[in-house]
Design a protein around this nucleic acid. Structure first.
Lengths: 210, 210, 210, 210
DNA sequence: TTTTAAACGAGACGGTACGTCTGGTCTTGTG
DNA sequence: CACAAGACCAGACGTACCGTCTCGTTTAAAA
């Protein structure tokens, strides 16, 4: 997102790209940690670049040099904290319902985890008004996870557990969409029971036609 | 939303409640219009209280007097522009699938309307980090609409078109959740075909058991 | 210097002139006082706008609104502290030598006063690189004083105590120039004796030719 | 200027004295030249250490290693450009008035030379608030020149052209003080005629008593 | 109709944070 | 080990808005 390591032999009047090889890893970590700490402590409100710099013991310019916005900092901090976004894979025990239940319940737990709640909300919030960031977030974090769902559903389809005509992309959104909706809008509590109920309804819709 | 129009029988050292009866409707409209204009023109970024006041030809204090935050202004502006949130009712032609298709397609159209997109995103964005506002938004706008879905589904349940054991609340989230997810995250285009596919899958899950 | 009270019915795209009638005298004094305090305490080095604002308990914008530079603040602070620059008048007892001795010795004392030394040096320093400010300083402070010398010398000339062919302008610079030179360059101590010696030499040069 | 080039026989915990013998003369010249160029082009304002380093094609540290302040750089640059400050000597044709006229007129020309004006003003300006630098400047540049005046006046005194009781130190300040005053304060144009008039008045004050 | 108190427009105020710039130090190759 | 290069910490710069607080000036309910 931030690192275009090869400022491709462009010929533009480049605004001076910093030399990534000289970058201080120490500062980078301090900044990311400080960002996560602050958003946990005081919410997105107090998440100012100045506060991050102060907390990290870092000059402001060191943040501005490497990140285009505080949302980008937050984004990298979350990715760093979270799972490896590349190698996401859903379990496949052969029992589709059980596998999805496991994953959806885990998702519910994550969304309810206060440590992850604040930064995630903040990111989604920024995303709404910053399409650039939205695209990065979707591409790097969201889509890999959705693709994992897609793969698992496709496997189930091939195993004859899911209607072969169903669109797995839509099927997967039928699962995660409601959870996301309830989490973001805070309409009703987001529980394991809810995840189970959504899963049950969705799977009935996906069942192979008799 | 903000004004409990308690007149002045209060005797407490209240921070001085303004007299709503003397309020200038002219200014109120100018402010709300300016807010919508600005968010359409320059995005939520440039939506400053100062900018709204300037555009509306109004003193800043007139905004601070009547609204607690710029999100509240935006909220009222959207409500004013949008449909009457109270009397929402879904059509009931007896054909559940057709009725829902109509409504979901209309929802898709609204979410794709560039005039509504920016302010709605801004509101959802604010909502994510301002639970207070989130509750108001949910209560005044979102829930009434969801309740309308619930009523229609209940009617279908009573007509034997939907599994009597199904939880209509969850059923309705199965419908709107995926649409909301796609709209907010911009993963894939939000189309009528998508709405139809979601509806189809969900209804199959809701069908009465044989 | 700063106050063009009538933004003369110009037609330029004026950068918005503040309304001087609403200006807070309290803030103005606090700023001027803080500036003098700081330059006395920590020298011209620590004289930052931020420090002045902080010391004065004032927002930075309040300084930027009314003064174009920190030198301008300092200038106004000095003028405020110093004598009324308009009504300067040298004594005229009829004894030119005695009158000038009194004034020159007083000047020496002022230049040696540590309270006035720092701000004056700072102003002269700024003057060297800011002709705009230099002109203001010369016009408002320096020239009125030099004119007072000129008037006194002219009177002496008319009384026959000074060569009628002498240029009083140059005569007066013969008096103050050496003092200024020694003060600014710190070559040798600036004492009453020095003032007396300069005066003696100069007056001999000015004596009517036999 | 500040560094007594004590090699490294020191054993103290000195902050690391650079080895002057390895110093790059090429860099030194480039830095001094760049400093003079920049002050001529853009004034003292844009005279940044960074700008000097960039213009000279030199690392910033190379400047900080060898000079304590940018004023010190400027000072050395001026000395390098200017006359040899050690061997200043006034002409002595036997005609004091003529000799002084020559020198004072040359001084006027130098002060009016735009190439010298900016750096000199900058130096004097810095001097006003940096006694350390001021002393160096006085000692290395100003005093040698003043001493030359003193020698010439003393010679004249011995030749009976000047009152033997006069203090030559003060006499010389009577000559240069007014010029300096007019130059720095820009009150009136600094011309040959002015120099002549000052000289005339001063010499009359210095004439041997009858 | 007159009075009069509150809402109004305007905008100055004390502040906070912004994003940029420079100062001076430290680090990383290169010669 | 001096050097060019430039990343680093630090902090002032001047600007933009914040939310509060006067100022007159409408303006609409009470007298």
């Amino acid at each position: 997102m931030t690192d275009a390591p090869t400022p491709p032999p462009s010929s533009s009047p480049a605004p001076k790209a910093p030399d990534a090889s000289r970058r201080s890893e120490r500062s980078r970590r301090a900044i990311l940690d400080a960002a996560l700490e602050l958003i946990g402590e005081t919410g997105f409100a107090k998440l100012t670049i100045e506060a991050i710099a102060a907390r990290a013991g870092v000059g402001k310019q060191t943040i501005y040099r490497w990140w285009p916005s505080k949302a980008a900092v937050l984004f990298e901090a979350c990715v760093l904290e979270g799972v490896d976004p590349a190698g996401v894979e859903l379990p496949d025990t052969g029992d589709l319902a059980a596998d999805l239940r496991t994953v959806l319940r885990a998702t519910v737990d994550e969304l309810n985890d206060p440590r992850l709640d604040a930064p995630t909300r903040a990111l989604v919030s920024e995303t709404a008004n910053d399409p650039e960031l939205g695209r990065a977030l979707t591409e790097k974090v969201l889509e890999p996870q959705l693709q994992a769902y897609a793969r698992r559903l496709r496997a189930a389809q091939e195993a004859g557990q899911v209607d072969p005509d169903a669109d797995v992309r839509i099927a997967l959104e039928l699962l995660v969409g409601p959870l996301f909706h309830r989490w973001l809008n805070r309409t009703l509590p987001l529980t394991h029971a809810y995840a189970d109920a959504v899963l049950d309804l969705a799977l009935r819709g996906l069942a192979p036609r008799p």
